[in-house]
Design a protein around this nucleic acid. Sequence first.
DNA 1: TTAAAACGATAGTAATACTATTGTATTGCA
DNA 2: TGCAATACAATAGTATTACTATCGTTTTAA
Lengths: 226, 226
Amino acid sequence: MNRLPTNIKIKVEENVYLKDPESSEKGKLIIEHGIKLMEELGLEAFTFKKLAERTGTTEATIYRYFESKHNLLVYLISWYWSWLEYRLVFATSNIASPEERLRVAIRILSGRIENDMDFAHIEEVTLQKIVIAESAKVYLTKAVDEDNKEGFFLSYKRLNKRIVDIILEINPAYAYPASLVSTVSESAHYQVFYAKHLPSLTNIDLHQENQLVDFLTEMVLRTIQK
Amino acid sequence: MNRLPTNIKIKVEENVYLKDPESSEKGKLIIEHGIKLMEELGLEAFTFKKLAERTGTTEATIYRYFESKHNLLVYLISWYWSWLEYRLVFATSNIASPEERLRVAIRILSGRIENDMDFAHIEEVTLQKIVIAESAKVYLTKAVDEDNKEGFFLSYKRLNKRIVDIILEINPAYAYPASLVSTVSESAHYQVFYAKHLPSLTNIDLHQENQLVDFLTEMVLRTIQK
DNA sequence: TTAAAACGATAGTAATACTATTGTATTGCA
DNA sequence: TGCAATACAATAGTATTACTATCGTTTTAA
């Protein structure tokens, strides 16, 4: 991965945090190690206490940034979606053909880190693993509706909408673009999870580079064809 | 729903429970109220203590049936998949056309309770809500691999395989049948969840009866077409 | 330089997810 | 009918979690 100027900042909804972790060194440490530790332990075993130890700080400090471990997860997942959106805009900006843009979008959704940039304290590859294993837990909660009102899912919705618009360019009559896009992005996650842990539920072999992208691309293009 | 003879018993993998809840009245009570309470509270707020109160028993007793709340969830989800498999076999037994059988399968996966039977102490409609909101949590765990070795996901795999076989009857050359089927069954859940809680991520309106089935059926048939 | 903000250190709480023990009730079966 | 096995209720206890609260010290920014 190439480094890109740190003057680009991925924004996350303000309601998600109490204090912007990007605004201080401690905050960045919390994000950096938060990602690593959450990936190691899984959301359930991950605690602020353990993260405090790891970052050489205390629970109290972390609670000054995030109201709860759930909100830290929301932050990380939102960051990821915003990052994908950024990359999508970047990667499709000069492409005229909507079909080609759709192909790029699916590659990005599938977690292919194409080319570009990364951000100093965020290990995108590790973050991707968190997204695969934990992102569903962000909304599969009794608090979804409140969280939604707070705008916790805006970045996911924005990304979804962008891809929906590409589909509608190709076939304005297609009735289920949003459902198709959300199906693809969710599928992109658990197909990888299945490939690792429950391989009989998938035909994807992670050692063969393009299968996931091919599967999803074919599915989408055939589905939306007139 | 019509009642069907109670002499049909949906079997769940033995490793999932310590003592078969179907083998006693207390056990059946635990399942019955377990479903209701878990749906009410959500998995996170659901505890064996609360369930014990509800069933007029104690935590200790519930722990004699299930090692953990996670395993109770696994039990319920497994029961559901077995139930779907049973209904699938039943509903497709006399249909010659594989395409027609596939259509039936997708309807069943989409949670359409078609016709038939129910089981005395199990409220299938409530169980379905649990499946929609909680089933992903069954495998999105650091313990997946162990749980998988114990056979916790066999019923899901069996159901998946049956539908994969139908697809291969229609198009033996299609490369990703298992991925497609798992995509459909997962999608069937969260499209419903989205429709209720995050409607901008879907085009499904739950008030319009056939949309989900139509969306999924069209996607599958187009994807596997030669 | 000085006040505000951030942080560290520590304490505390209610709840959770269990394990363990013991005495009583219920049941199967000889 | 009687007795042993099993099931269950009642109770106690533990380590951990997910916080909240307080207070003194350090860091930072005007």
